[in-house]
């Protein structure tokens, strides 16, 4: 049982869920979320804290039972076939959840045995070498630094050769170099046909995903490629740079036609959904001396700030 047996269903879509809803204590944490993830794709899952990302991921791997909704994960029913899903899914929890009082090798051997792999010792040894942890295999997992813990957790996830990885904020609290290495690894795995659903807060990580989904207050607001998401918001963006953009921001924010203003270093991103209204609004300021106006492409961050602003409006 070293490799996952191919299923006759062989789905092109690895995650296909509809209308998932989950409440805790009367509060809807996930509200009518439908999403699909294609095979071999890296799917970014974005949204503010407490928006329901973790809950959604847990429902996908059978750790939580949805109140309503249904769907499949790797072709198996998330409600009735969670054992088969568990066998084929690698789930990396937000908080490090391997055994801190077991060594690196013992943790990996435990995972290999639980998944019924033949030659658990050999598989664990190979994983240690792949992770670059050779010589440290006797170190307790709890003594590792944040970056190494994350590497070990990912190593444990992919040890049983899953078909789908569910990664819950895997790079939180990890330094940029480790993050970069991590993403290179993810892309290499995806190139081999592994599908990945990864939740994150980082925009640069979102831009490295093939597709992204944005969730806020339990509702899935948008789903698609990065370009599709930016386009979907219909934002027209101007960038203005110059001295004291802070005061300018205060003035501009009173203007109708401007839906979003966000400072980026020494410049401001000024965006609106209606191009002509936006241009009308900024017209009086364009000739102001010292300021340089440039029409730009909306960034993913602009799109998210806009989405977040709109979803907040809905909940007021």
């Amino acid at each position: 049982m070293s490799t996952v047996p191919a299923t006759d269903k062989a789905p092109e879509t690895v995650i296909d869920v509809h209308h998932l809803t989950k409440s805790f204590g009367g509060r809807k944490v996930v509200d009518d979320v439908s999403m699909s993830v294609k095979k071999g794709r890296i799917h970014g899952f974005l949204g503010p804290n407490g928006s329901g990302k973790t809950t959604t991921i847990r429902m996908l791997c059978g750790l939580l039972t949805p109140d309503s909704g249904d769907g499949t994960c790797l072709g198996f029913d998330i409600l009735t076939e969670s054992d088969r899903i568990r066998r084929r899914v690698g789930y990396m929890t937000q908080k490090f959840s391997l055994y801190q009082d077991l060594s690196i090798r013992e943790n990996l051997e435990f995972v290999a045995r639980v998944y019924g792999l033949s030659d658990a010792r050999g598989k664990a040894k190979a994983a240690i070498e792949r992770l670059g942890l050779k010589g440290r295999e006797k170190q307790l997992a709890g003594e590792l630094s944040g970056g190494w813990k994350q590497r070990l957790a990912l190593g444990a996830c992919i040890l049983p050769e899953p078909a789908l990885l569910l990664l819950d904020e895997p790079t939180a609290g990890v330094d940029p170099q480790a993050r970069r290495d991590f993403w290179n690894e993810i892309h290499a795995l995806a190139a081999d046909g592994l599908s990945v659903l990864v939740s994150t807060h980082y925009m640069d990580e979102a831009e490295r995903c093939h597709e992204i989904a944005y969730i806020a207050y339990g509702k899935l607001l948008v789903q698609g490629t990065v370009d599709e998401v930016i386009e979907g918001t219909g934002l027209v963006t101007w960038t203005v740079s110059g001295p004291d953009v802070h005061h300018l921001q205060a003035e501009l924010s009173k203007q109708p036609g401007i839906d979003m203003i966000a400072p980026f270093g020494l410049s401001l991103h000024v965006a609106g959904h209606d191009e002509s209204a936006l241009e009308q609004a900024i017209a009086p300021y364009r000739d102001r001396s010292g300021f340089k106006w440039e029409k730009g492409e909306a960034t993913l961050e602009d799109a998210f700030i806009d989405l977040m602003g709109r979803s907040e409006d809905n909940f007021r």
Partner: peptide
């Protein structure tokens, strides 16, 4: 949630492999 009978998990002495994995882990801890 009651797990339905799943031949994939029951075959190949899977029960003993997983039971043994857990035993070894608990023993080390």
């Amino acid at each position: 949630m009651t797990a339905p009978y799943d031949p994939e998990l029951n075959g190949n002495g899977g029960f003993f492999k997983r039971f043994w994995a857990m035993t070894v882990k608990e023993f080390i801890q």
